[in-house]
Amino acid sequence: MPTTEAQILDWLQAVTDPEIPTISLVDLGVIREVRVEDDGGVHVRLTPTFAGCPAMDYMRRDVETTLRAHGIPRVTTEISLRDPWTSDMVTERGREGLRQHGLATPPKLNGGLLELDILEYAECPRCHTTNTELRTPFGATLCRAVHYCHDCRQLFEQFKPI
């Protein structure tokens, strides 16, 4: 029986973000399309969270290695901006994964434009208060912002909305 796309996506749950091991690339929304070709080969289309993301080559390699280990004879990957990433593409399971890693989740934009006001008052991943403030929109990686929780009196990181 030929491999189905659902099966491929299931296998790809094992491929996690190189810097956040609690979220898969599928749940992050980086894997936009999986296609099983007539000859049994598989094509995977990925899109970067940020255009300058230095982890794309690792992600590509991890996808290829994982699918080959499951016996897929030919794996091709493509990085495309055709269906550009937004933080709304993170699934519910993905948001849970971000929280597990101690990151605040991005507010939902629901197709709307990013209004800069929503960057304030992120929910603290430790105590869940919104008594917080944005310290800087630039963090340890391109996809993270740094906030301060007035209740915990601690900095925390947020996966940025975009």
């Binding site: 255009a51 230095p54 929109p137 391109l142």
Partner: peptide, 20 residues
């Protein structure tokens, strides 16, 4: 420190944009 990180992050973004 925040500004050190901000300018470095914007640098990385801009190099990414130039690559595209």
């Amino acid at each position: 420190l925040e500004e050190d990180i901000a300018f470095s992050s914007m640098a990385q973004d801009k190099l990414g944009h130039s690559l595209q």
